[in-house]
Design a protein around this nucleic acid. Sequence first.
DNA 1: TATGAATGAGGGTTCATTCAT
DNA 2: GATGAATGAACCCTCATTCAT
Lengths: 204, 204, 204, 204
Amino acid sequence: MTPTRKTKQDVVSEFRCSEILAAARKVFATRGFSEATVDDIALSAGIAKGTVYLYFPSKKDIYLAALKSGLTDLQEKTRATMQAATGIRAKLASFVRTRIEYAEANRDFIKIYHSEFGNLTNAAACDSEFQQLYLLQAKMLENALNDAVDAGEIRRVRTDFTAFIIYDMVRGVMTQRLLGWSTGAMEDDIQLLNDLIWKGIVAA
Amino acid sequence: MTPTRKTKQDVVSEFRCSEILAAARKVFATRGFSEATVDDIALSAGIAKGTVYLYFPSKKDIYLAALKSGLTDLQEKTRATMQAATGIRAKLASFVRTRIEYAEANRDFIKIYHSEFGNLTNAAACDSEFQQLYLLQAKMLENALNDAVDAGEIRRVRTDFTAFIIYDMVRGVMTQRLLGWSTGAMEDDIQLLNDLIWKGIVAA
Amino acid sequence: MTPTRKTKQDVVSEFRCSEILAAARKVFATRGFSEATVDDIALSAGIAKGTVYLYFPSKKDIYLAALKSGLTDLQEKTRATMQAATGIRAKLASFVRTRIEYAEANRDFIKIYHSEFGNLTNAAACDSEFQQLYLLQAKMLENALNDAVDAGEIRRVRTDFTAFIIYDMVRGVMTQRLLGWSTGAMEDDIQLLNDLIWKGIVAA
Amino acid sequence: MTPTRKTKQDVVSEFRCSEILAAARKVFATRGFSEATVDDIALSAGIAKGTVYLYFPSKKDIYLAALKSGLTDLQEKTRATMQAATGIRAKLASFVRTRIEYAEANRDFIKIYHSEFGNLTNAAACDSEFQQLYLLQAKMLENALNDAVDAGEIRRVRTDFTAFIIYDMVRGVMTQRLLGWSTGAMEDDIQLLNDLIWKGIVAA
DNA sequence: TATGAATGAGGGTTCATTCAT
DNA sequence: GATGAATGAACCCTCATTCAT
């Protein structure tokens, strides 16, 4: 009936791809790109090495696909929840909560994500599309901040700069929690982070 | 009791080491650890590959030494300026300024530093002493915050958590500037960052 | 005694075989044995890779079959036209014309043929039946030459040696024409080659 | 004294290169390019695989170097003896003798040479400089023939075509002898070949 | 019979490390 | 100490062959 029906082949193929990507995320998260071998990934996915190459043309492509799929997913979830929220305070809270919850549920991806972010200054990454994907994350915040400034909700600040800083605050909390450095419950961390973003360090 | 007088050999040896480390920082910053070769480093240092191994037992050790020396340096400079400052606001401002100025002057090191920080969750880094070195950075902040809370300078917050967040805000600005993403002058960035740390996003 | 009647299966099977061999000749001629993949051949034959293995047990066997079928064909055509000719001069002319025309019409096969001939000294080819097939080609010439010597048509020479040389002269012209190195029309080349075989270089 | 004195390094380096090339010729002659492995060559040269890559950037380059050095050598020897000979008959005899003796003394190289010649029609070889090197061989003959025609020593023929044919006659004899197909002594083969080139098949 | 996804052995190449000079 | 040639382990990727459907 529906014209774009997936064939059984497509379903199997997609399944294999996602299996490989899941295995890849685990391996890359543990070993990093360079230390990970394609054999590791294949083994972890329970398939033979050659099979991996039926679905991805190179190790680098596996890595990028793993990164991109997670990045797109996170990006979309963030966008959706921010859009659903009303007012800058709620929007910022949505940004914070969505991402910290996502990190909790996708630890392997977040490790790769942050690792790659740390390497953003390498020659290899500089001309890649990934800088753009990263910038996009901050841009969402910036747009929300711009609207809030226009609406008089918050004071006038350099919104691009502020957006990055909020982005980094959230990233830092993700890392703390990933490494088990945070002593608090996730809800406490979220609330405190919201608080700091909103009120700053100083006493009210 | 003979004081630890440096022999001429020691001086030459130290000089070679620092030359190699400087070259290594440049190479690692450009290529990343895995893509960098010992030949690259030797070439950049103007010596032969074998000579490198007279001063460092392995490539990994060069990397760690480059990281450690920079980290210790940054740590010490931060500590000193914070100690010289009076009051939490001044201390935080010292933390911010010292680090952002350091990043501006030591771009190669900061690239390695941030790259490694991104990989902190890798198996390789997990059991290393480097987690401790990173934690130490935040600990300085935490201590200052604790003092300030005790003195009633700022409201009572989870100081460990807050310290990390401030640390990450500063790290984020370093990255922005390193990548040329920041549109402002360094002084403006420093001031705005101080402002945001102190007052938060919302209008005062 | 039932004659060897071909079943429908046999016909289909033979057809598939010849299709695969035709595709194989094209691919092997273009890429050479090692660079050609079974996938290339299957694709060129318009069938799936697995299907190839229903008709040939291995890549090497496809190659040998392609070589052998062409070789047998060429051999038979050469034999027939030489037999039909009367007198050594006419027989040699038949040999020359048949082969050069065949090369013109079966470029793919000739490429493989000459390539394999060049590899005749390789360990792989040495113990094969192909040396015999090659020798057979020259043997036809040798027999004709022997008859001519016996009949007093030509002077007494080492006919085995001479046969090889004539064989090589023809092969050389095939190659020239295949590579587009010959500046003349085919008929001119044939005539001149006959001339040189018969009269040698020196002026009559 | 002489400014372009070879350092010891250079001598050792050249020696290694020639050792590797000698080993490569043996291996390539036995197995052919594709079946030969770099390990085979290294083993045959008595060095480690990695060492090969200190002297040649790739397997292909080893092959081409082996081919080129032999080809240049053969070319130069042929040129020199032809130049020293007076009259077309002597020049042709020089061409024949030089090459057949060379083949006898450099069997490994000749195997590669003829194998490569057989592959000349492959896509890979078509745009290479090697076609030119091959053409050069025939060109020497062609020039000599042109001079002879001008001097009235021989009848007027298409000298380019004739040159190729003589070239192929010699090549054929080389192959015969390499394969042990020739029943005669080398001197006999040389004389008979000269004879056939000069007088043709027919009785004088 | 036909398919094409899956396999895994094999090879070219790199590069950290060693060691004779 | 300084050198850089030599080593060989390790890894990415290819592709002939198999086999479940």
